[in-house]
Amino acid sequence: MSLKRKDLLSLASLSVDEIMLVLETADSFKEVTGREIKKVPALRGKTVVNLFFEPSTRTRTSFELAAKRLSADVINFAPSSSSVVKGETLLDTARNIEAMQADIIVLRHSSAGAAETLAHGVKSSVINAGDGWHEHPTQALLDLYTIRQRGMNFNGLRVAIVGDVSHSRVARSNIYALIKLGAEVRLVGPPTMMPSCVEKLGAKVYYNMDEGLRGVHVIMMLRLQLERQGRAQFPTIREYSRLYGLTAERVRLADAGAIVMHPGPINRGVEIAPDVADSLSSVILDQVANGVAVRMGILYLMSGAN
C-alpha cells in the first residue's frame, strides 16, 4: 500500500482512507521503535532532506530519527545557518537540493503555502513539516495516532482545542482531520484568537473555557506565543492564564477518561498547570514518542509513491 500522491501538504486534502492508512502504517513501525535494534532497511538508498527555514528541534529531530530508523540517508539543511543569502527564492534553494537527488524533502517554513509552492516546483516528494499558520499535517497525524492509541473512536469524539487558533497550524490540521473523521471540534479561546469565519469549517467556538471543556474526551492545548502579550490579542499572560489556562480543576469538567495533549514546547504555568502536564491524563510525551513512528509511516508511504 502507498499514498497515491507525490506530496503530503495538508490534511485538508487527505481523505479519511488516506488518514487511516497512515495511522495503520504507523502501527507497524511503532513496534520497530520498541525493539533493541530500532532499524529496518525500508528506505535504504533513499535520501531525505530536512529543509528547515524556521528553527525547530523536536519536529526536525523526530523526522531525522524516523528517516534513520528506515535506513535512509538524512541531510539537515537549515538555510538560516547555511550560506543561503537572503533573496534566493525557496524554489532555487529546493532545486539545488533536488539536483543532489533528494527523494523526499521535509519542509518547515514560516510562510503559509511554502510547501505547496515547493511541491509544484520540484520532482522530489515534499512533506510539509509546518508552513506558517497554515498546516502541520504530521503533527496532527501523530495527535490522531495518540488518540487512537488510547482506544478512542473518532466518530462522536468531543475534542476541545484551546488557545490561539488563529496563529496555529497545528489547530488547522487537527480541525480538518477531526471533522472529517466525525469528531465534534470545539475551539476555546478569546475572540481575538479565533480566525475569521472559522465556524464555517464545522467547528464550534467557545469563549468560556469551562463551557468548552464540559464533557470533552480530548483537551488539546496550544502553545501561547508569549511575545503576543499586549499586542491586542490578550492583555497580559496573567489574565490569559486565569481565563484559558488548563488547571486540574478544569480537567475535571471534561469526561472522566479525558486525555490532555500539547504539541510542545509547553509554557508551564501559562497555558497548562505543571501538575496537569505531569498528570496521568497527560499524553504529551506519548505524542513525542508516537511522532517518530508516525513519521516513519509517512516517509515509508511517500517513498512508495515515487
Binding site: A112, G113, D131, G132, E135, P195, S196, C197, L201
Partner: peptide, 8 residues
C-alpha cells in the same frame, strides 16, 4: 474564510 483556510 479563505484566509483562515489558507492560514494567510
Amino acid at each position: 474564510l479563505i484566509s483562515t483556510e489558507l492560514g494567510l
